[in-house]
């Protein structure tokens, strides 16, 4: 997949974590890596980018173990941006699904349809 495209998707995912709570950097990476294979992608540059854009701000908070952690917090600018991106993503992905699945979603049916057309 094109890296800019994938980065866009990862950005939305990262932003969605921060809708409900403030999180520290490693927690974001950890949550993302539970659902998506992120080994070939780098999440920190995304955090830095979104912070630079003013979508997140940061603050330090003591952790139980001692050293203070840097927490990321969604700004109003950020939530607006997230909602816009999410709408565009929803519209885009629903179009993609409609095209790919054409009413059915399992591989067998799709393959059968192709065979019927080519073998008759």
């Amino acid at each position: 997949m094109k890296s800019q495209f994938k980065r866009g998707i990862l950005e939305i995912c990262v932003m969605s974590f921060l809708v409900d709570e403030d999180l520290y950097g490693y927690a974001i990476i950890n949550r993302l890596s539970q659902k998506i294979d992120v080994t070939e992608n780098t999440i920190y540059p995304i955090l830095r980018r979104l912070t630079k854009e003013g979508f997140f701000d940061t603050y330090l908070k003591e952790s139980q173990a001692g050293a203070p952690r840097k927490y990321y917090r969604m700004t109003y600018k950020g939530i607006n941006h997230f909602l816009r991106q999410k709408d565009e993503w929803d519209a885009f992905i629903s179009g993609v699904y409609q095209i790919l699945n054409q009413g059915v979603s399992d591989d067998e049916t799709i393959l059968k349809r192709f065979k019927e057309r080519t073998e008759s």
Binding site: Y24, G25, Y26, I29, L47, S63, A67, K70
Partner: peptide, 9 residues
């Protein structure tokens, strides 16, 4: 920032 994340991990 990386040091921070490494500590958490």
């Amino acid at each position: 920032d990386y040091q921070d994340m490494i500590d958490s991990a």
